[in-house]
């Protein structure tokens, strides 16, 4: 971002990361943070469509939903919830480290966050594999002895968790970029907007999971 400048914008005493169309670092930070919030609003609406479908069908087919949630492994799901919550903590610590300008703090915490994020995906992989084995993936191979409405449940399960996992993958990509920049010492107490904004994204993805976990794995199970 720092190197746009074919337009003869004299750097003067400006911070090298200040883009030519902003007046101050503060304005630039505010714009980035607001931008990320606006983006997260679009994400909420994106998942919102899935949640609407979930609510409607859950109401129509409570039995199928119950049967579906019995097929999910709440131990693995619970473990993943813990993993993500811890990763949110390390992410927050990474942002904090960036704000105070601690390079080591950023690098360590970003690496930890990356490890937790990957752990989540690995666990998710095992869960998915089990679904394939048990013929619970909607489509031609779906267990024909089951109530067809359970296909609705598993379709939504895969869409919701799949899109969530995709967000995790994107998040990991972003964090890798941040890690590289942090390693090179790009960030400082004056300039840490990218880390802060990535953190917002990461927390959002965690929060989505905090909704998915009870809705898909837990609700109604005590019956």
């Amino acid at each position: 971002m720092a190197h746009i400048d074919a337009n003869g914008h004299a750097p003067q005493e400006h911070h090298p990361a200040l883009q030519h169309h902003f007046h101050t670092m503060a304005q630039q930070l505010e714009a980035s943070v607001l931008g990320m919030w606006v983006f997260l609003v679009t994400e909420v609406m994106f998942f919102g469509g899935l949640f609407m479908a979930y609510i409607l069908y859950r109401n129509l087919y409570p039995d199928a939903w119950l049967a579906g949630s019995h097929e999910l492994n709440e131990v693995l799901g619970g473990a993943n919830t813990v993993v993500l919550i811890v990763s949110s903590l390390t992410m927050a610590l990474a942002v904090r480290a960036a704000q105070v300008g601690s390079r080591i703090g950023q690098v360590v915490n970003l690496i930890l966050t990356l490890i937790f994020g990957t752990t989540f995906l690995v666990i998710k992989y095992f869960e998915y594999a089990a679904k394939f084995e048990h013929h619970l993936v909607p489509g031609a191979h779906f267990d024909p002895t089951r109530d067809p409405a359970q296909q609705l449940y598993f379709s939504l399960y895969f869409m919701m968790t799949g899109i969530h996992a995709l967000h995790m993958v994107v998040g990991i990509g972003i964090l890798l970029v941040m890690l590289r920049k942090a390693w090179k010492g790009h960030f400082s107490a004056e300039y840490y907007a990218p880390v802060e904004v990535s953190g917002l994204y990461w927390h959002f993805v965690d929060i989505v999971w905090i909704f998915l976990f009870p809705l898909l794995y837990l609700i109604g199970k005590h019956h």
Partner: peptide, 10 residues
Amino acid sequence: GFAIFDPRMG
């Protein structure tokens, strides 16, 4: 082959 709006699956 997911089932979301498919009336055959409800």
